[in-house]
Amino acid sequence: MERNSTRLDQLFEFYREDPNDAFTLYAIATEYLKIDPSKAMEYYQKLLQDHENYTGTYYHAGKLHESFGEKEKAEQIYKKGMLISQREGNRHAYSELQQAFNRLMDLDYEEDE
């Protein structure tokens, strides 16, 4: 826990310097994911709201909603993430989101691209 809190302290210092940096918010959410998932969700929500084109958020936010038993919210996040990833030309993020969505929806086929 000490290591996480030291890392969080450093990340919050970066956040104070630039509160609009999506990567810093993402890193804070990721650190909280290990120690306080509810707090992580707060930061993922902020990213989804303020930095909708930051495609890395969608997979982790969707998975976190799944872990909370919120299937419908996870589904919405995966779908929106796929649309944005496609729009941004981020094939890797799109593929990850599509796989997560397929697992969530119990679709066990592989889609050809």
Score class of each variant (00 low, 15 high):
45 Q>Y: 09
27 A>G: 04
62 G>Y: 04
49 Q>R: 04
29 A>N: 04
47 L>I: 08
63 K>D: 14
31 E>C: 12
40 A>C: 11
52 E>A: 09
46 K>C: 03
44 Y>I: 02
44 Y>T: 01
52 E>R: 07
60 H>S: 10
50 D>K: 02
30 T>N: 13
55 T>N: 13
32 Y>N: 05
51 H>C: 01
55 T>D: 14
43 Y>R: 01
34 K>D: 13
23 F>E: 13
33 L>G: 05
41 M>C: 08
24 T>D: 11
54 Y>N: 04
42 E>Y: 07
30 T>Y: 12
34 K>Q: 14
30 T>D: 15
32 Y>L: 09
48 L>V: 00
25 L>F: 01
32 Y>P: 03
34 K>M: 12
36 D>Y: 10
23 F>M: 08
45 Q>F: 06
45 Q>M: 11
39 K>R: 14
25 L>G: 03
62 G>F: 07
43 Y>L: 01
55 T>E: 11
27 A>H: 06
61 A>V: 06
49 Q>P: 00
24 T>C: 13
54 Y>F: 15
45 Q>D: 13
40 A>G: 09
59 Y>H: 11
39 K>N: 10
25 L>I: 01
48 L>D: 07
48 L>W: 03
34 K>N: 12
47 L>A: 05
36 D>R: 09
51 H>D: 00
48 L>I: 01
62 G>Q: 05
24 T>P: 09
52 E>Q: 10
40 A>D: 04
23 F>T: 05
36 D>I: 00
34 K>R: 14
63 K>R: 15
27 A>S: 15
39 K>H: 10
58 Y>V: 03
42 E>Q: 11
32 Y>V: 04
54 Y>K: 03
37 P>Y: 12
24 T>I: 14
49 Q>D: 07
43 Y>I: 02
28 I>D: 02
61 A>R: 03
60 H>A: 06
29 A>I: 02
52 E>K: 08
26 Y>G: 03
36 D>V: 01
48 L>G: 09
59 Y>A: 09
39 K>T: 12
51 H>R: 00
45 Q>L: 13
45 Q>I: 04
28 I>T: 05
38 S>N: 12
30 T>S: 15
53 N>K: 13
61 A>Y: 07
58 Y>T: 02
35 I>Y: 11
